[in-house]
Simulated assay, not measured.
Amino acid sequence: MFFVSLTYRVPLEEVEPHMAGHMEWLKKYYDAGVFMASGRKVPRTGGVIFARGERAVLEACLAEDPFAIHKLADCEIVEFSVSTAIPGMEALKS
Rank of each mutant, 00 (worst) to 15 (best):
K27Q: 15
K28R: 15
G39H: 07
L26A: 07
G46Y: 14
E14C: 10
V42N: 09
E54I: 05
S38T: 14
V42L: 15
P43I: 11
E54K: 13
V82L: 00
H70W: 05
F67M: 06
G88D: 03
G53I: 09
M19K: 12
E24Y: 04
G39L: 15
C61V: 14
H18D: 00
P87W: 08
K28C: 14
E54M: 08
S83V: 04
L92E: 04
M19D: 03
L6V: 03
S5F: 07
I77C: 10
A91D: 09
A56D: 03
A37N: 12
A56E: 10
H22M: 13
T84Q: 08
L72I: 05
E54H: 00
E54F: 01
R9S: 08
I69H: 12
L58E: 04
V57Q: 02
G33L: 01
W25K: 03
G33T: 09
F67D: 03
S38K: 00
G33Q: 08
A63D: 07
L26K: 07
G47F: 09
V10I: 13
P87E: 12
G46S: 13
K93E: 06
L58A: 06
E76D: 14
T7F: 06
S81V: 10
L58G: 13
I69T: 06
L6H: 00
I69D: 03
V78R: 15
V82E: 05
S38F: 09
A56S: 12
L6A: 00
K28G: 01
D74N: 12
I69R: 15
E79A: 14
F50M: 12
E16Y: 09
G39N: 10
T45I: 08
P66F: 01
I49W: 00
K28F: 02
M36H: 04
T84R: 11
A85K: 07
P43D: 05
R52T: 11
T7K: 15
P11W: 04
L72K: 03
A56G: 02
R9C: 06
C61N: 11
H70G: 06
Y8G: 02
K27M: 15
V48C: 06
A91S: 06
A68F: 09
P66C: 07
M23W: 00
F2H: 08
S83R: 14
M1T: 09
E59C: 02
L26G: 00
G33N: 12
G53D: 11
R40Y: 01
D31K: 07
V15G: 04
A32M: 01
G33I: 02
R44C: 05
S83I: 14
H18L: 08
C75I: 10
E14M: 08
S81M: 09
R40T: 08
V15T: 05
S83N: 11
G21Q: 11
H70E: 15
T7G: 10
E16K: 15
Y8R: 13
M89K: 12
P87G: 03
G33C: 03
G39F: 05
A60E: 13
R9P: 06
V57Y: 02
L72Y: 02
S83C: 02
V4G: 01
E13W: 13
F3Q: 05
R52W: 03
H70F: 12
